[in-house]
């Protein structure tokens, strides 16, 4: 519970809220990268250096850029979302917002009321810096988590081929 945690959390939340509510699609993605970067900083604060850097590499460097490319290919540059009829739009926002609000209320209540969570951690119970070095992660990946790693490789290969096949130009049908 430090000041930096609050700043980072506020940054993350602000970025993601902006990403989900701005009109201009490119602005949405730019705000989203801010949120992802804040999240990576939160990971760093939790002591997970490897995951934090991977987060930046994958989300800021790949997913956000990919989404930008998709927007550029499907939208005219700088186009804003098509204005729908305002009544249906507000109705949509109210329904979605209320559902999400209800989910958050339930989750917050569960977190607050859960007996399983230690309400106040004694300082000595907190591991000062758990060993999440790259070497430990590598050892874990190569020993305990070999099967998931291999399946992940298979999944990524399948996703690569699948994405190329799906996005490839459809063959013109013979007349």
């Amino acid at each position: 519970m430090t000041v930096s945690f609050f700043i980072l959390a506020a940054l993350t939340i602000a970025g993601t809220v902006a990403a989900m509510s701005l009109r201009n699609l490119v602005h949405c993605i730019l705000a989203l990268t801010l949120g992802f970067a804040g999240l990576a900083a939160l990971y760093l604060q939790l002591g997970a250096q490897f995951v934090g850097f991977t987060q930046i590499l994958v989300y800021v460097g790949a997913v956000a850029i990919l989404a930008m490319f998709a927007i550029m290919m499907t939208q005219r540059a700088g186009a804003v979302a098509q204005p729908a009829s305002s009544s249906s739009r507000t109705r949509g926002w109210i329904t979605g917002g209320m559902t999400a609000g209800a989910v958050f209320a339930v989750l917050a209540w569960a977190i607050h009321a859960s007996a399983a969570l230690p309400q106040t951690l004694p300082p000595q119970a907190l591991p000062s810096q758990p060993d999440a070095g790259v070497r430990a992660i590598g050892n874990a990946l190569m020993h305990g988590f070999v099967l998931p790693l291999e399946i992940m490789g298979l999944l990524l290969t399948a996703a690569l081929i699948g994405a190329v096949l799906v996005a490839m130009q459809e063959k013109q049908e013979m007349p």
């Binding site: 939340i13 989900m20 979605g96 989910v103």
Partner: peptide, 8 residues
Amino acid sequence: LFSIGLAG
């Protein structure tokens, strides 16, 4: 974060 994603 989850709720924001859900709302979006």
